[in-house]
């Protein structure tokens, strides 16, 4: 069994029996897409809500919700997945330091979650499970065979959705 590690602002696709994993999600959002018919899974580690925030330089598609999600769907299609079968699971988007809530940049967690949901809605993909918000870091692992997403936190242990 291979575990594919997804870094920050990165994305990847897996087929059984591989698993997709990303560690230390804070305000970042881990987006998992799954086609249960063709057994193709995809994961993105989204860092910022919109690519319009980018200031110059080359655009890294995996970094922004509005670019990462369409690109992930396309990558999964290349592996034989069909968008109409896809469902989504989300984790992350925490606000690690709540006191800074007044600053827009520090509210990045909730904004990331909203942006992911908008991009998923635009692609007509339903969010069937989420563990977002709060103030804790998360590590997630997705099993492309069963479609189960495992979410680990420091204080609340492990849960599966």
């Amino acid at each position: 069994m291979e575990i594919i590690k997804i870094g920050m602002a990165d994305l990847g696709v897996a087929k059984p029996p591989s698993r997709l994993r990303t560690t230390g999600l804070g305000s970042c959002v881990g987006v998992v897409l799954y086609d249960h018919v063709h057994k193709v899974a995809g994961m993105a580690h989204v860092m910022l809500p919109e690519s319009s925030l980018a200031k110059g330089g080359e655009l890294s598609v995996g970094k922004y919700a509005d670019t990462a999600i369409p690109y992930l769907i396309q990558q999964m299609q290349n592996e034989g997945a069909a968008p109409r079968n896809m469902v989504a699971k989300l984790a992350g988007g925490a606000q690690m330091f709540a006191f800074l809530g007044g600053n827009d940049m520090m509210r990045i967690g909730p904004r990331n979650v909203e942006a992911c949901k908008m991009a998923l809605q635009a692609a007509q993909i339903k969010v069937i499970a989420e563990d977002t918000g709060g103030n804790c870091g998360r590590t997630i692992e997705f099993d492309s065979t069963t479609g189960v997403l495992q979410i680990r936190t420091v204080n609340q242990g492990v849960k599966e959705v």
Binding site: G24, G26, S27, M47, K55, C136, G137
Partner: peptide
């Protein structure tokens, strides 16, 4: 100041958002 006891990745990524807009 804020205090958090949590995964280093989740905490330090807070220092990277401003940078994330202009590079990797």
């Amino acid at each position: 100041p804020g205090l958090a006891v949590d995964m280093a990745g989740a905490i330090l990524s807070y220092g990277l958002y401003a940078l994330g807009q202009s590079g990797d």
